[in-house]
């Protein structure tokens, strides 16, 4: 089975890209789909209705959505295997741009909108840099000049991620994405799957529910206003 992990900020076009992937492979491959979101998601119902494929969703609620994704991924793989799927597509909620949900033995796709500003790739550097492919959407709305400038901004962040530009509504330019999926590593039953990146430092006392402000009231990774530079820098 091929595991495809799709990350990217809200409304960047993740589902639109996934729709093109499903459309392209549906006649030859059995596809399953899992969406992680915080409070609301409709993609699972829409895609099930449109393509008749098994889909699921998980709400993370008060938990970090990437944390939730990591918790449920192994069960999801088992579910997809039981469905005898050739492909499992995992759509993240894409809220925390620090985390990267990509794993080993998967194809990691970062979907990023070309109209999100020239600094966007830098702001979500880990999510872009640890992906195998960055799909740049909404290029129908921008000029060739801006496409080139945006590409340059991604290349400043990483030169190992393949860049594919598309109008995800029409699926233009995605032939190179489909080729990468055809060549993607497969996941064998019982394989040990690990996160690619190093996760942010935790456990965060605020996440656990302590409400006091001020570092004196917390433990673990703390910092005062003065005298502490970047305590921790990510990937």
């Amino acid at each position: 089975m091929i595991l495809i992990i799709v990350a990217g900020p809200p409304s960047s076009g993740k589902t639109s890209v996934i729709r093109q992937i499903i459309r392209h492979f549906i006649s030859e491959k059995k596809i399953t789909y899992l969406k992680i979101d915080v409070v609301q998601a409709f993609e699972d119902e829409e895609l099930k209705k449109e393509f008749g494929i098994p889909t699921r969703k998980v709400y993370s609620g008060d938990l970090c959505p990437d944390h939730t994704g990591i918790m449920v991924l192994e069960d999801a793989i088992t579910w997809a295997e039981n469905e005898e799927a050739d492909i499992l597509i995992f759509e993240s909620a894409g809220l925390c741009l620090r985390c990267t949900p990509y794993t080993t033995q998967s194809l990691g796709i970062c979907v990023i909108s070309s109209i999100s500003g020239v600094n966007a790739p830098l702001k979500m550097a880990p999510m872009v840099a640890l992906a195998d492919i960055a799909v740049v959407t909404k290029t129908d709305l921008i000029s060739q000049a801006e496409k080139e400038v945006f590409r340059e901004c991604i290349e400043k962040v990483t030169n190992t991620t393949e860049i594919i530009e598309t109008n995800a509504l029409e699926g233009t330019g995605l032939r190179y994405l489909m080729r990468r999926i055809n060549e993607a590593p497969t996941l064998a039953k019982g394989d040990k799957v690990l996160l690619r990146g190093s996760p942010p430092l935790g456990v965060c006392t605020i996440c656990v529910g302590k409400k006091e402000i001020g570092w004196q009231h917390h433990f673990g990774v703390v910092r005062p206003l003065d005298g502490a530079d970047n305590i921790y820098r990510g990937d």
Binding site: S116, G117, V118, D140, S143, Q144, E146, V149, R151, Y176
Partner: peptide, 30 residues
Amino acid sequence: RDPAQKPIAMITQNTKCFADLTVNDFLIMH
């Protein structure tokens, strides 16, 4: 795929500039 080699530029019905830059900086970036 390589924007520098691609022989085509298209100006679409929707083309806008989203980069928050001056004309000068935008052109210099390009």
